[in-house]
Amino acid sequence: MPSCPALIIDGVCKRFGALRALDEVSFEVEQGEFFGLLGPNGAGKTTLISCMAGLARQDSGHIRVMEHDTVSDYRAARRKLGVVPQELVFDPFFTVRETLRIQSGYFGLGRNDDWMDEILARLDLTAKADVNMRALSGGMKRRVLVAQALVHRPPVIVLDEPTAGVDVELRKGLWVFIRELNRQGHTIVLTTHYLEEAESLCSRIAMLKQGRVVALERTADLLARRVQQTLRLRLGNGASLPAEFLAIARATPDGRIELLLDSADTVADCVARLHAHGVRFDDIELDKPDLEDVFMATMQDVPA
């Protein structure tokens, strides 16, 4: 059986009054992907996640989670989805374990303690299991939110800024755990403002700006194509730059020369041409763009 996409988002629009929070958003996420949903504040990421989860209803368009429409077949769709909300919410009446037991019950699961113990251990919460939610630190509350989203072993896991306020060590631990879930076949959709995180984790990325998808590509392709590569040279003594390179060159304060190249493919060609002119260099380095450069460039390119 060919596997269905984990997530289909098809022409989704959502307005709040005059504001178009989502404007014809369409993309698909395949099963087993680690997918990044990026965008500046107010881009519509949380709104889109709310529509997926049935916390909000889109004005038009359709969303399917593992083939189940989130409106007409909402119960099946919700069973397949685990959401870590962006807001740090908790129920002050209960302990961590009660919180998880209750959440598990809501999904129709009776005895689920083994899995809950494992989640608690993986999120380093075992020692806090019988502590009231009120008595946890912010980072711990955030981890309980992650635990709650995983309690029914959803095939699709959506994390809306799960690492905001979580310390470095736990952030690493969390990613090891989420990666492991991803390897086991869970589809992950991640929203984060830590772009290094997205760069190292996500195999594909969608960027939203003002409710529209402005980029949708494999992370590697985005990094390779979207932004100019910078080739930085220190010319050997006496050498000067051939005229044909002047248009793309600029000097740095420390006496080096930077060549701005359109893509990674042209780097080798450029070096070969310099050699052909007999130019020698003492030092050469390629400044790889990171996701932050791509992000900034993408957001500037797109007219507001």
Binding site: L55, V89, I102, H152
Partner: peptide, 17 residues
């Protein structure tokens, strides 16, 4: 209380009819 504190999401996310 659930609405003001936001934890109403815990009962809105699951497949409760």
């Amino acid at each position: 209380q659930s609405k003001v504190t936001g934890n109403i999401v815990f009962v809105l996310l699951p497949p409760i009819s």
